[in-house]
Design a protein around this nucleic acid. Sequence first.
RNA 1: GGCGAGGUAGCUCAGUUGGUUAGAGCACAGGAUUCAUAACCCUGAGGUCGGGAGUUCAAAUCUCCUCCUCGCUACCA
Length: 699
Amino acid sequence: MEFKRHLVTAALPYANGPVHIGHLAGCYLPADIYVRYQRAQKRDVKFICGSDEHGVPITIRAMREGVTPQDVVDKYNTIIKDSFDGMGISFDIYSRTSNPTHKETSQAFFKKLYDDGAFEERESEQYYDAEKDVFLADRYIVGTCPVCANPNAYGDQCEKCGSTLSPEQLINPRSALSNSPLVKKPTTHWYFPLNKYEDFLKEWIVVGKKDEWKSNVYGQCKSWLDSGLQPRAMTRDSSWGVPVPLPGANGKVLYVWFDAPIGYISATKELTNQWADYWCQENTKLVHFIGKDNIVFHCIIFPAMLKAHGGFVLPENVPANEFLNIEGEKVSTSRNWAVWVDEYLKDFPDQQDALRYVLCANAPESKDNDFTWKDFQDRVNNELSAVLGNFENRAFVLMHKLCKGRVPALHADAMNEMDNALIADIKDAKTKVENAIEGYKFREGLAEVIDLARKGNKYLQDNAPWTLAKTPELQEQNQKRIDICMHLCLQLTANLAILLNPFLPYTATKMCKKMKVVPRMLDWENAGRIDLLKVNYPLLAPELLFRKIEDEEVTAQVEKLRENLKKATQQIVENKPTTVSEAETPLAVAKETITFDDFAKIDLRVGTILKAEKVEKADKLLKLEVDMGTEVRTIVSGIALHFAPEEIIGKQVSVVANLAPRKMRGIESNGMILMAQNADGKLIFVSPLQTADNGSEVK
RNA sequence: GGCGAGGUAGCUCAGUUGGUUAGAGCACAGGAUUCAUAACCCUGAGGUCGGGAGUUCAAAUCUCCUCCUCGCUACCA
C-alpha cells in the first residue's frame, strides 16, 4: 500500500524519574532518526510522545516525598522534556496524560467500549484499608517477601530480589498508606475480554506480520497468543488517574495501561485538528517505537482496544529494541546504575551527536547490548572523528590550500576511473542508507554513512592532490586533477551532510553553515547528486566537527557511576529515600516491638531433616521430611537454589511448628525452616550448636 | 518448569532460499605517507561459527539433544 501519512510514536516515558541513555537507545533515538528521515523525504509525518503521568508508583513517590502526585509529574515531566530537547529528539508534540484533552479522549474511548458492551463487569474481593477508606492496589500493599525476607516488599514485586509476587504471598501484609492490617472488600471493575480478540490478533500478527516484524517482537507476541489471553481489568480503585466516566464509579480510574496508549491519540488531537486523518485513514502508516518491555501492550492490548473501538488504524510495525546495559551490568534506577541524559548534557555540553552516534552505532537492535565509556571514547575518537570528522576537515583544508577557498571546477576532459567510482559510491550510499532506515536497521544505516566517508578518505589518498601541487612545472594539467578531486570531495561532504542529518542533526547543521548552504539542501532527494555546491562558491574556513574524548573524561564518568552506586546502596541501607529511585527496600530494618505474648504464640522446635527432594516443576522448592520428635512432618522450603537435597539430610534445624499449613505445588507444608540471610543473599541454617533432642522447644 | 530472543575473530556486529579458502568495523602488529583531529591509506595476524549427534556430495545455515545469557510467565515460609 502507498502510504499518504506517517504517524510515529515513541513510548510514553513514565514521569516518576528522569530518562537515561537506555531509554534513548531503546526507542527515542531510533524513532527520531526515522522521523527526521521521513521529513527529509518530505513525507507527511507526525512524531508523537508525552509523559505517562498516572499509575500507582507515582502516588507512592508522592506519598514518600510528602508532595502531591501532580507535583511529582510536573517535576519529572520538565526534566524529561528538557532531556529530549537537549538531545534533539524532534517530537512534533510532547504532551502529558494529565492534560484535559487526554481525560476527555480516554474517557470517550472507554465510554464507547462500555456502550458497545465490550467490557465485562466483575466483582472481586480486593484488599482495603479501612483506616484510610481506600482500596489498595498491589503496589500499595507491603509485607515481608517470602523469597528473600525483605520486610518491605510490594504486593506485586519484591524490589530487592526481583520476585514477582501477589499480595496473598506477602508475610504480614499491611497497607503502605496507614500501616494498618488489611481487610478484603468486594469491588467492581470492568474487564476487557482479550480472549475474544485472539482470533483477530492471530490472523493479524501471526499470519500477517510474520516476515515483517522483528523476530524478537514477533516471537514474543506469538508466545502470548499461543498461551491464550485472559480478560484484563481496565479500571482500578484509585484517586490518581482518569476517572471512570460512569455513574456510581466514584473512586475508580482507568488502568494506566488502558489510558497511556490512548495518550498517543490525545497528543495528536492537541497537535492538529486533522488528527483523525492520522488515526483513522487507512493509508496512514502507524509505527510504534518502544523498548521490549512494552511489546505486549503495543502489539496485543492496544491493538485489541483499537479493534474493539473500531475506526482506527493498526500499527504497521512495532520495532522494539532490547535493553542497553551499562558497563556490563543491567540498568538499575534504584541502585542508580544508569547514565542519565540530563547529566550527560551537563558533563558533555554540545556533544549531543557524539552520544547519538554511539547509541545508534551500538543500539540493542537484535539483543541486549552493553554501553561502556571506553567504547564511547573509542567510537567517537576512532570512527566518528578519525574517519568522518577527519575527512570533512581534510576536504576543507585542502580546498583552502589548493583551490583558493572556492569550489573548484569539475573538468570533464580530465576525469578518470577513480572519479567515476566515487560518484557511483555516492549514489549507492543513498540507496543503502534509505533501505536501512526504512527497514528499521539504523545501526546499519549509520555504518553506511561512515563507510562513505571512509571511501572519501581513500579517494583523497589515492589522488593525493597535495603531491600534485608540488610539481610547479606540471601545474596546469595537475591543477585540473586537483580541481576534480577537491570538487568531488566537497560534493561528497555535502552528501554526507544529507545522509548524516537523520542520525546526527547537529553535525549536519554545522556542515551546512560551513558550506554556506540553506537547510533545504538536506532534503533527501538531493542525496546522490554531485552538483550540490556551485563551482567558484566560497566556503568558510575549516573548523573541527568533533572533538576527541579524553581519557580523563572517561575515567571520571566511570568513577561517577561507581560513586552513585555506592551512595544509592548506602541510602538503601539507611532506609532514606533516594532522589532518583522509585522504591527502596532496606536490607534489614528492625521490625516493630512485640510483646512477650506475641512471641509466645510462636511454637519454635528443633527437628532433624530426614529426607529432602526437589519439588517437580519448581526451581526453588525442596520437599523435606523433618523428624519433630513426636512426629515426622512434611515441610516445603524455598531453598533449592542454595542447597542440594543430599547435603542437608541429617541437619538439625529450627522449625516454626505452629504455622498454618499451606499448599505449594500441591504439597502441603506444615511449618517453616528458619534461615539467616546474608546481605549477599546467602542462606544459613539456624541450628542448635550442639545436637538437641528432636522436638525440643526453642525459647 | 513453560515460552520467546540470543550465543559467529580480543570487542561490537553482518552472514539472504544449505554450495567454493566464514565477512566488516574497532582494537593489535608491520609498512607507506604528511593535506588532515599522532589522523588517513596499504598489508598482516586473529575464528574447530556455544557443545554433541544426525540428514546431505556439501551445514554457521536444516533436524534432535545439551549448556550459557537476557526477557516474559508459573511456582516460590
